[in-house]
Simulated scan of single mutants.
Amino acid sequence: MKSVIRLGLCVAALWGGAALAGEDWKDPAYGGSGVDSESVYQTKEQGSDKGLYVLLGAGTEGYTGELAPDLNVGFSYGATVGFKPTRGLGLELAYSGGMTDIDTFGPGGAADGGDIIRNGGQAAVTIGLSPTKLQPYLMGGIGIENHNVRGLAPLADYQDDTSGYVPAGVGLRYNIGSLLTADARVSYNIPFEQEFAPVDNDIWTGRYQALLQLGGTY
């Protein structure tokens, strides 16, 4: 329940930020009536909203459902390379990792660092929800990840495993200046064929992640 509440608060914060977005960008792709020369100049000064982007960041992640009581919320990190052919559409490849302690062994876990080290990669599509300067978006795709169990063995039936997952999330992206891009996103990752933990695969027993990333759009 606590993990669901944390996820809900993150989503509410992201959507609250979207409500405070600046002036609309009059992009014909969103049904706008065009732009004058002054607004084109301002857009270029504020940064490109299309093209290649590279992001690096960190945040937190945790597990839901049957896994929530046994796995503590941990540190998460990631890197994203993407391309926006239009303001509304983004295509991206991303790496993410995380460290989680098993709660049975206390706050510090059974090993130095995380008891479970996760590394994964995913391909995703982002869909912009508005032509505002601060743009909210939806994200979805497919990924594969590896869980490496460390420390005492066996760890309450946890084991090394490679499995797939379906990421789905919401985010906010903002271009600062001519190159710097800030991106905040919250995602929920639905596992399939995972066997690293002694639970059944279902939509309610997954992993959530909140990341703040910085980079550039070129």
Rank of each mutant, 00 (worst) to 15 (best):
V125Y: 03
L180A: 14
T132H: 13
G62F: 00
V125K: 02
P191G: 05
S76Q: 02
A153P: 00
G171S: 08
L52P: 03
I117N: 10
G109Y: 00
D161E: 07
G31S: 11
Y158V: 07
L71S: 03
T43G: 15
Q122R: 14
V4F: 13
M1N: 14
S3C: 06
I142D: 07
L93T: 07
S130C: 11
N119F: 03
I190C: 06
G121W: 08
E195V: 08
E92Q: 13
G128C: 06
E145M: 15
E61Y: 04
T86Q: 10
E66K: 07
G151Q: 04
Q213C: 05
E61R: 04
V81Y: 03
F105H: 07
T100G: 03
V73P: 00
Q213S: 10
E23N: 09
G82V: 06
P107L: 12
L91P: 00
R87H: 10
G141F: 05
Q159H: 15
R207K: 15
T162K: 10
K2A: 14
I176E: 03
A123T: 11
T205E: 06
N119S: 13
A123G: 14
K84N: 08
G97S: 06
R207N: 12
A124H: 00
D70P: 01
S187H: 05
Y137W: 09
L67A: 10
W15K: 09
G8W: 02
T205A: 12
E66Y: 00
I176R: 04
A21G: 07
Y41I: 14
T132I: 01
G215M: 09
F192Y: 15
A79F: 09
D183V: 06
G106Q: 06
V81S: 02
V40H: 12
Y218W: 14
A18Y: 02
Q209P: 02
N146D: 10
C10S: 05
M139D: 02
A182F: 09
G59M: 05
N119V: 04
S187K: 08
N148L: 12
G106K: 01
Q213A: 08
G108V: 05
D200Y: 08
R173W: 00
G169K: 04
T104R: 11
V40K: 11
I116Q: 00
S130I: 06
D101P: 00
A79Q: 04
D24T: 11
G8N: 05
Y165I: 07
G121C: 12
G98H: 02
E92P: 00
Y188C: 09
P85T: 11
K84V: 04
D202A: 13
A21W: 01
Y95E: 09
L20I: 10
Q194I: 11
Q159S: 15
E92L: 13
T205L: 06
L211C: 08
G108H: 08
G88I: 05
L71N: 01
Q46L: 10
L89E: 03
P131A: 12
A18W: 05
G169H: 02
T181E: 11
L14E: 01
G121K: 02
V11H: 07
S178A: 15
P136M: 08
G16H: 06
V35A: 15
G34K: 09
G88P: 01
R173S: 14
N175Q: 14
D157L: 15
L138D: 03
D103T: 13
V186L: 13
L211A: 09
Q209M: 13
